[in-house]
Design a protein around this nucleic acid. Structure first.
Length: 105
DNA sequence: CATTTGACCGAGT
DNA sequence: GACTCGGCCAAAT
């Protein structure tokens, strides 16, 4: 159906994030695509404001990098859930192995 | 109603 | 691999 319920974009984003299984991740772009939009930044904006109560660490940037400025907090969750990581020489020090952890509905 | 902003993405240099 | 630039989208002011 060409039209979705008048749910807030926020609720839609949180619903998708909640569906991501433990140990897996999805990119902002993927989440936006599932909502029928290309607003990856809009998704990030929602997480920044309302994501505090959602598994935001399961949403990463393209390339498997953790959310800007939250790499340290996200890392703790990844190790706890057994998310496949890859060590890097970047400031974040790691990245998600999307070839294994990328969630696909 | 117009402008700014942001936990982005991809391509080009 | 690093950096710049443009584009896209929704919420906040």
């Amino acid at each position: 159906m060409p039209q979705q319920q008048p749910l807030g974009f926020v609720e839609a984003v949180l619903a998708v994030v909640s569906d991501i299984p433990s140990g897996m991740v999805a990119t902002y772009g993927d989440v936006a695509a599932l909502l029928g939009s290309r607003g990856a930044r809009a998704v990030g904006g929602v997480m920044a404001r309302y994501g505090s109560d959602a598994p935001w660490w399961r949403v990463v940037r393209a390339g498997g990098r953790p959310p800007s400025g939250h790499a340290a907090s996200a890392l703790a969750h990844y190790e706890r859930e057994g998310t496949p990581l890859v060590a890097t020489a970047d400031d974040d020090g790691y990245r998600i192995d999307l070839s294994v952890a990328r969630w696909r509905p």
